[in-house]
Each structure stands twice: as C-alpha cells, then as structure tokens.
Design a protein around this nucleic acid. Structure first.
Lengths: 369, 369
DNA sequence: TGTTGACATTCAAACGATTGAATAGTAAAA
DNA sequence: TTTTACTATTCAATCGTTTGAATGTCAACA
C-alpha cells in the first residue's frame, strides 16, 4: 500500500499502481468531459485501484487549480444562542443543492474573534460569506475587507442594504405589533413592556411596532411599566435581565396583567421572577416572548411567542449568496436586496385573558403590601 | 489596483507593485526565519504594499506547499442539540492556542450526512478529527476510512477505546448513582425512572448506576415505574418522550414521589406531563434531569440535574487530538486513551423532599380515582 | 498511398505559496 | 589578495490537481 511522505494517497500513487498517467487518472476520477473518451475497461481499472488505495482528492490542490473553493463562509455571532441554530440549518439546506460547503465559524460574541475569523474565511477563499449578526457589530471591516476582495455577502438579522449588503431579517415592527394585538385581543389593558438593549438592532423597530399597535388599540402604555434590558454580555443573559425586570415591575407597585418581553429568554426570566413572587402564569399574569427558540417551547407553561421563520431566513440567505456568486461570474451587476420575513404568532400556555380587575397583579400586590 | 483573474491579490501582485521578487515578499510576509536577513526598510515597504492591496495569503496554496492544513475536523451529530454547543466551545478553546482551526460540520442526526461530511473532512486534509457522537452510529467507516488515512481521531461522548479510538465521556454510571442518591437523600423511596433509548450508548451505564445506588440505599425499584424512551428521531424528541412517560406513569396508578429522567429534555417533558395533570413540581413530585443544558436552567422551576462538564470534555478532546498529531509527526506510537469525566449534581427547584405519605403522588391519584 | 476522423492517452503548463540552494555584494579578518 | 562571514535577495523546484494542446493508434475512405 503506497503511502507517500504526506501520508495521503495521491493521483500519482494511483497512476503508478495501475500503469496509467496522472492525467488519465485525473480525468477518470474527476469525471471530466474527456472521460467519455477513456475506454470503459480503463475507467473500471482506475476506479477500482483508487478505491482500493483509499484515494481522496486533495481539496487544496483541486481548489487551487480550479480556482473554486466550493465554500461559503458562515460567521455566526454566537452559536450558543439557540436562535442561531435554525438559521444555520437553513443555510446548510440552501447550500446543499448548489454543492457548496459551509465553513462555519462561531465568533462567541467577541469582536476580536469576529474579525479574525472573517480574515480566515477570506484566506480560505470562500466564494461568499453569510453573516449572522443580530448581535451588534461595527460593520466597517465587514465592508472594507470583504468587499475589497470582491466576495458576495449576505447578512441575516440586520438591515445593511443602505451599505450595499443584501439583508434578510424578520419584520420586527410587524412582530412587535402582532404581540401587542394578541394581548389586547385577550383583553389585557395594563401591559408591561421590556424593550431590548439599545445597541441591539432589533430593539427599536420591535418597540415601534408595539407602540403603533398600542396606539391603534387605544392602549396607554404606562412609562413606569416600560423597561429596558441592559446591554448584554452574552446571549443567555436575557434571562437574568428578564428576571431583574420582573422584580422591578413588581416592586413598582403598578398594576399590570401581562408582560411583553423582548425575546424568549427574557420572557423565561420574567416567568421565573413572577413565580418567585408567588404569581401564576398565565392565571395572574400573561407573558409573551419573541423568536420561538427551543427553551420557550419546552418550558411549562410553554411561552406564547412571536416566531421568526429562522430556517427559511437562512435558506434564503444561502440562495441569495449562491445567486450573487453566479451573477459575479457572469459579470452581471447585483444590487443589494432586502427581505423582511413575516413573523408568526405561536400561542402557548403563557398567555390567557386577564382574570378580571380584582385579580390584576398590581391590585393583589397592593392588598398584600 | 492590480486585480488578477482570480479576483484575489497574490504574492506576485505585491512583488510587482513594490519591485521585489516573490520569494522576498513571501519570506517577509510569512515571517520565515530568513526574514531576519531582509533589510528593515524592505520589510516595511513590502508590508505596507501588502496592506494597501489587501493581500491575504491563499490558504490552499500555503497548505498545499507546507503540507499542513492547520485544520481539525469537528463532526457533531446534531448541532441543534444544546448538548453539543458547550463541547464545541471547549474544542474551540482547546484548538486556539495550538492555532488549529476547527472545521465544524453538523450531521443533523443523518447517517448519510455523517459519512459524506467525514469524507469532506478528509479531502480537506484535516490533520485530526473530533467526533461528537452521543447519538448512535455504526462506527465501521469511522475506523476504516479515517484510520486508513492515518488521521488521529478522538471521540466525545462514547467509549471506543476497544476499537483503538481515544474517548472522552462523562462517567454515566457515577452520574446515574448520584441522581439516585440525591433523591434518596431527600427522602424519596418510590421513584419512577425513565431509561434512555436502547441504541443510545449512555443509556445502559446510567441505568446501571441508578440500580447500584438504589440497591445500596435499600430502595426497591418498581418495574412498573421503570420506563424506556423509544429510539429517538431527533434530539428534541426527548421532550415528547418524557411527556408520554409521565402520562403513562400517572395512568399506571402506582404511587411515586419522584421521577428520575434520562436527560433534561425528558425531564422537561415529565414536568409538562405532571403539571398538565394538576400536580406541582416539586411539591407533589420531584423531577431530575441529566446533562444540564440551557433549557433546564431557564425553565421554572429550574431542573435539578446531573451536570456533564461538557466544555471541559471538549477542551480535553482538542488537547488530545493536538498531542496525537505531534506524536505522529515524531513517529511516536500512541495508544487510545480514555477519560471518564466526573459528573456533578446541580440542585435547582425541581427537587425537594416528599410531602409526607399522605401527599404521595399515587396516594392522591388513588383518592381521586 | 495518403487523408480524414475518431478514439485513447499523455505532455506540460498552470494555480499561489514556500524554501533549500544559489547568487551577489560588502566588510572584516588572515 | 584571498578567505571568511555576513547580509540581502533571487532561482527554481515543489506540493497535487486540472486541462488545453499534442501525440499516437487504428480503421475507413478516396
């Protein structure tokens, strides 16, 4: 069994072993057009020998020569955020048929890693890049470095079309409005809201949607019942933030029958906070989340939430990046595209109608105090 | 700005732009030992020009020549399982100092993907492979293909040392015993147990530990309160399994004050099932999980669980694979190693002492029926 | 016999970076 | 003046694969 210095079987090994030239072997094994001309007997011999020696073409040599890496860099801001996974899944699904391989990197919410991984993606000659960046990043380098190298890029969970980057994200405004309408429809009128951290791109439009729907329904939002998450250290810290907000809203002494949280983890934190104070969800207070990640679905009560079609968003991003690569090859001009995916209300057990005015949270607390 | 056919800036571009030869430029930019000999002025010029043109070395060409890919293939059975993520994090942390890049692939619990990704990992000349495979896989190919190519491999969450593969996994037996002892220590005597699916490697030793600790504590396990999860379609289906088991154990009419579930998702399913029947956790029944994944921590009540040191396990696997690569380079023989990581009890709110015999679950149900 | 065409295979030049060996130039030592 | 030692730079081969062009073979046709 011929083992070369590198420890890997090469074309030359196969060629020598079966007595044909490297060219012929290459043509046969890579199923080049020319392989029509190669005698069937020869082909069989070569293939058998390659199989026997355990030959695998060297992707480096191949990519170098073909000038195609068949690779798309996928840079996620934080893989431990359950939010990322369905997007990644969608991307995988979208790249598969075009036979691109995702080169998946996890920035772990660290700016430094983000940059260095992006650099590595470029060095590995990814033909396109997809960035999942709901988390906040200064996007200067993104543009200067990636676009300088003429690599198509699509961003998920953020709108950067004004900077010329195709973007796929959920319609946060519609989602916020949807959440508020759901609570209003159930009969809630005194609603506490937890806004996302300021630096987070989703926060503003989501809040705008909430306000719009509240106004449309004639609901007055009590400013003392509007909270804001601090800027987050990591993705799971939304839970702590929600817990803290719940305590503060209880301490405020204001009456409320529902909490509209920024995302699911925040909602789970709120549930913990409310239950810790002896309140029941949803009997004493409804809680709404946003995103529809796994923990929201398996908690009891399940969290009613605004679902983002994450998988579909990833799929679309993948399709766009593939299209952009093709367009670049044909020297067609491409303009930045934008897709706002429609969110969807998922009703679970954490939301219900308020239990009448005497049961309002604030009311009960007032009695207790 | 010199843009070549490939669309990427090459050494030749930089060389031409600043008037030195490709060799000199290479020596300077790759900081080869010879670069000591290059005049400081020259170095500055070259570096400035490289910067200006946005030069990034081509990883393919470099790896081809150096015969080093600086890459470790990481093949996870299912990234959407929250169990995987901390392991991946640990791996990343372990590879960083050795400046290896993880090539992360997600098999999505599909055998076909598993094989084809493994093949791609080999084609990309990963210098080592780490497989995260708590999920069941027939490992024949693993051995034949990977080891045939002389690539070091470490497996996480499974013991394959008899097949000559270094393995890192939690001490399932100790964990099972630990869980049982915790419940016994709280005063529970009538305990329902949900065993893992048969094909899952962890199931047997975990159950053995449970039995051992039960015997040691003098607890009789009622066979009618021992359930088994069906073979799982995907990782999140443990929840459904737990829910179903909870219903069956309630329907059985047997008395029990605690449920020892196979893993956290199963435990969350049990909680849903019990609460759905009007029982409170932990007042009426304690519930224990295993693994300590995110959903268990953020649910209310938080699930008491047996924590696997996942991050540490990933870290160790990374270190081992790096060591194995070094050993191979120095032609040292390596034997398969085994690490059984010690599990750790994490007490949350889902477990408490039983509420006296009159409050036992079965007792209440009997009254109700 | 010479030409044509189809078939089967090989030559040799890339792809972009690295690196051992070689080439100059300079300065100090013998 | 030659030798030695060093500095500064370049030559040219190499990694493993692909591919346009070239070669050689054979049969059929004029």
């Amino acid at each position: 069994m011929a083992q070369r210095r590198s420890g890997h079987v090469t074309l030359l090994d196969v060629a020598r072993a079966c007595g044909f030239s490297v060219s012929t072997v290459s043509i046969v094994l890579s199923e080049a057009p020319l392989s029509r001309n190669v005698a069937e007997k020869t082909r069989q011999q070569i293939r058998a020998m390659a199989q026997q020696l355990g030959y695998h073409p060297d992707a480096f040599a191949r990519s170098l020569r073909r000038r195609r890496s068949q690779t798309i860099g996928v840079l996620a801001y934080d893989l431990s955020d359950p939010y990322c996974i369905p997007i990644v899944r969608g991307i995988q699904a979208g790249l598969q048929p075009a036979s691109y391989l995702p080169l998946l990197m996890d920035a772990q919410t660290q700016r430094g890693r983000f940059d260095s991984y992006l650099e590595m993606i470029l060095e590995r000659r990814a033909e396109g890049v997809i960035v999942i960046a709901s988390w906040v990043f200064d996007e200067t380098n993104l543009l200067s470095d990636v676009e300088k190298n003429n690599v198509p890029i699509v961003i998920v969970s953020r709108d950067l079309t004004e900077r010329g980057v195709s973007s796929v994200l959920v319609d946060n405004e519609a989602g916020g409005a949807m959440a508020m309408r759901h609570l209003h429809g159930l009969g809630h009128r005194r609603i506490a809201v937890i806004r996302g951290p300021e630096e987070l791109f989703d926060s503003a439009p989501r809040w705008a949607g909430v306000q719009r729907a509240a106004a449309a329904a004639g609901i007055q939002l009590d400013p003392r019942l509007v909270f804001q998450l601090p800027s987050l250290a990591d993705s799971a810290s939304g839970f702590e933030g929600g817990l803290d907000c719940a305590r503060r809203m209880l301490a405020s002494g204001r009456a409320f029958t529902a909490v509209l949280a920024f995302d699911d983890l925040t909602a789970l934190g709120v549930v913990r906070g409310l239950m810790g104070a002896g309140l029941r969800v949803p009997e004493d207070c409804s809680v709404l989340g946003f995103d529809d990640v796994l923990p929201a679905a398996v908690a009891t009560p399940g969290i009613t939430t605004i679902r983002q079609p994450l998988r579909e968003m990833g799929l679309l991003a993948a399709e766009w990046v593939v299209e952009a690569i093709e367009a670049r090859e044909q020297r067609r001009e491409q303009t930045a595209r934008l897709h706002r995916a429609p969110p969807e209300l998922v009703v679970r057990m954490s939301s219900a109608g308020p239990a009448g005015s005497t049961n309002r949270v604030g009311g009960r607390r007032d009695e207790g105090t």
